[in-house]
Design a protein around this nucleic acid. Sequence first.
RNA 1: GCGGGUGUAGCUCAGUUGGUUAGAGCGCCUGAUUGUGGUUCAGGAGGUCGUGGGUUCGAUCCCCAUCACUCGCCCCA
Length: 415
Amino acid sequence: MTNLQPVRGTHDLLPDDRRRHRHVENTAQKISELYGFDEMTTPIFEFTDVFARTLGDTSDIVTKEMYTFETKGGESVTLRPEGTAGVARAFISNGLAQHVPVKAFYKGPMFRHERPQKGRQRQFHQIGVELIGVEGPQADIEVIALGHHILKELGLLKSTVLEINSLGDVESRTAFRAVLTDYFQSHESDLSEDSRNRLVKNPLRILDSKDDGDRKVVAGAPDFAAYLNDDSKAFIDTVHQGLTDLGISFERNPKLVRGLDYYCHTAFEFTTSELGAQSAVLAGGRYDGLIEQMGGPSTPGVGWAAGIERLAMLAEDSPAKDRPISVVPVSPDLFARAQEMAQSLRNEGFFIEFSFTGNMKRRLKRADKSNARAALILGEDELKDDKVMLRDLDSGEQEAISLSAVVATLQTKYR
RNA sequence: GCGGGUGUAGCUCAGUUGGUUAGAGCGCCUGAUUGUGGUUCAGGAGGUCGUGGGUUCGAUCCCCAUCACUCGCCCCA
């Protein structure tokens, strides 16, 4: 071992961090189940094609951010950069078209080879949901409502804003793309170098450029809404109305363009201004062509993903750790007896701390440090009368109670 | 991938205009209290000054490289 630092962009999750993550995960999972979304897990790596063919040849994820390896068998595999492609692949692999609608919740690590910064790591963690097999906009409403509900439960509605846009169906998008390309080509000399590249690869992305020069050009660009056909218009209108009916406030953002090629119709992001350059906290959209494009039956889908690190940074403090009861032997002769007592109380369902070494004073100190609410002190004097000392560590009061009453006493006082 | 900043004890940070034993607070350990924690007092442990090279009689300090973190760009969760 020459280098004991973790690989760039990866982090250890020590218990305090892990508790915060778990709070996010558990909250998200609990709320998802209220909506009938059950957890499923797909492998954290897939054949490279699963991502390369679905995310789009021009997306940054595919062109520069994938962790791709060759296996001993000579096959190319990639650590998943996002969750939807894997779920879609699993949908096809397992013949889940027989069971639509599929409502999936997932959580786990994702990997992108990017420059780390605040709210961005190379290995990070996401929670996400996918609703597969429903054509109508009610699915979009349901999925956004679920995301909204989770943010509410985490106390994040005040620090986030829901932005929403329509990318239209294929017909609308093709038409708009042609008009938009013409427009930007006629202003090509005013565009930044980045945007001139985008003009070839994905002109829609010029719309959300941060470059000042680009913004001036964008200000005069044609409006996507004007090019939505009747179906696309009706679709997004229904989504807007549905959210309004549910009391979910949102802002329309015609510049919102998601980076992955598979999105259509509804695109949305819950954004924040509290994470430096990163604004998206929970984001997703509809991907009607994805499953067919992967070789499965034509099946619509809609979903979102959220970064657990980002949510954990924004969330209010997670619930405190449970407070244990400590079992403390007064002398070495009673260590074994104390451990037996600890064990039997655990069998009764109590959270018992039992430290392994040290004299009584040290053990009490450690009990205090573990935030124990009480200590059961085993000493020869009391044991002669079949009693133990029960000390409340908050009040400092203690009393000898009989061994046979320990469980009942703890039940009433500390549970 | 590109640009800026930072890197001294477990944590948060001083410091040295280049000079011999590098400091503080918090935390940790021991004792005052051989059957009682949280307060107090006394003592103690802990540092290749990110790493490698260079300049110098001498480098933690200056120079170069490198790694990591961080902020921004790109993009995204």
